[in-house]
C-alpha cells in the first residue's frame, strides 16, 4: 500500500541550521496496517509524514502509494490518496466556512472541481447521518462556522472529513496532542472505530507511548531520520512501556538521556 525507499531529506542545507531530517528511510505498509510511530523530538516522525503527504519535495528516494509512484507529485495531487488530520486543530478545517461546506469540500477530494453546486441536498442528508456517529451534536448545527467549534470537535470533524472519501492511507500527525486528556481519548476512540469500520491503512505519529502501544497493529520507533525498531502484530500484543525503553537503549547504544522527551 505504501512503500518508502531510501528517502532522504535535509532542511536548510549548507547553513548552520542544516538538519538531516530523513536519513535513508525505508518503510513498507501492507493494506490494512495501522502503524503507530514514536520517537524523540526531531527523530523525523512528522517529517516522514509530511514527505508522504508531499508538503515539500524529498531530496532523493521514492514514495509509492498503492502501486503509483507519487515522488514527483505536488501535495494537492497526492490528496487523492490521502486523508490527513493535523496536530493543530486549526489546520484541518476552514474556520470561516460552515460545517457542511467543509464536509462538501472533503467529499470532493481528488475529484475535478466544476461549476456544479458545491453542496447538494442529498449530500446534506448524508452528512447529517455521518455527523450523528460522532455523537457531538454537530448534526443539528451543520451551518455553524467551524471556527466556533472547540478543538476536540474540530479534530473529530477533520477525522470525518479525512475518511469521508475512503483514503488509501490515513495520515495522523499527533492529532490528539493539542487536546485535553479526556477529549484526546474520545478522539482516539473515534479514530480506532473509523479505521476498523472502513478497514483503513493508517500512519499515526504520536508523542504518547501508551497510545502507541494501545492502538494499531504495528509500532515503529524512529531515531535520527531512520526506523530503529519495528514491532509487528504478535509481538506488540504483550508489549509494555518498559520493553520499549529497554529496546531503545539497546539499539541506540545509549540510555535515553531524557525520558521526558520520549514520554511527553
Amino acid at each position: 500500500m505504501l512503500e518508502l525507499k531510501e528517502v532522504y531529506k535535509t532542511f536548510n542545507p549548507g547553513t548552520v541550521n542544516e538538519k538531516r531530517a530523513l536519513n535513508g528511510l525505508n518503510l513498507t505498509l501492507k493494506e490494512g496496517d495501522f502503524v503507530t510511530v514514536i520517537g524523540s523530538n526531531g527523530a523525523g516522525k512528522s517529517t516522514a509524514l509530511n514527505a508522504i503527504a508531499g508538503v515539500w519535495p524529498i531530496d532523493s528516494g521514492s514514495i509509492v502509494i498503492d502501486g503509483q509512484d507519487v515522488t514527483g507529485l505536488p501535495e494537492y495531487k497526492r490528496a487523492k490518496f490521502l486523508g490527513r488530520v493535523f496536530q493543530d486543530p486549526m489546520t484541518g478545517t476552514a474556520a470561516t466556512m460552515q460545517i457542511e461546506e467543509n464536509l462538501a469540500l472533503a467529499l470532493r477530494r481528488g475529484d475535478r472541481r466544476t461549476l456544479r453546486a458545491g453542496i447538494t441536498k442529498k449530500e446534506r442528508d448524508m452528512f447529517r447521518e455521518m455527523l450523528k456517529t460522532l455523537d457531538l451534536g454537530l448534526e443539528d448545527r451543520m451551518t455553524t462556522k467551524v471556527g466556533l467549534l472547540s478543538g476536540g470537535q474540530r479534530q473529530a470533524l477533520t477525522l470525518l472529513m479525512a475518511t469521508l472519501k475512503k483514503p488509501k492511507l490515513l495520515l495522523l500527525d499527533e492529532h490528539t496532542a493539542a487536546l485535553d486528556p479526556k477529549t484526546a481519548e474520545k478522539v482516539l476512540n473515534t479514530t480506532d472505530r473509523v479505521i476498523k469500520e472502513h478497514n483503513l491503512t493508517a500512519f499515526m505519529v504520536t508523542h504518547n507511548m501508551k497510545d502507541a502501544i494501545a492502538h494499531g497493529n504495528r509500532l515503529i520507533m524512529m531515531n535520527e531520520g531512520k526506523i530503529i525498531l519495528d514491532i509487528g502484530e504478535e509481538e506488540k500484543k504483550g508489549l509494555t512501556m518498559k520493553d520499549l525503553l529497554d529496546k531503545f537503549a539497546e539499539i541506540s547504544g545509549s540510555s535515553i538521556q531524557s525520558d521526558k522527551v520520549l514520554l511527553a
Binding site: A53, K77, A79, K80, M90, A95, M97, L105, R108
Partner: peptide, 11 residues
C-alpha cells in the same frame, strides 16, 4: 480560509 486544508483536500 485555510490554504493547508485546501491543499489537503486536493485543491
Amino acid at each position: 480560509a485555510n490554504g493547508n486544508m485546501a491543499r489537503a483536500q486536493g485543491i
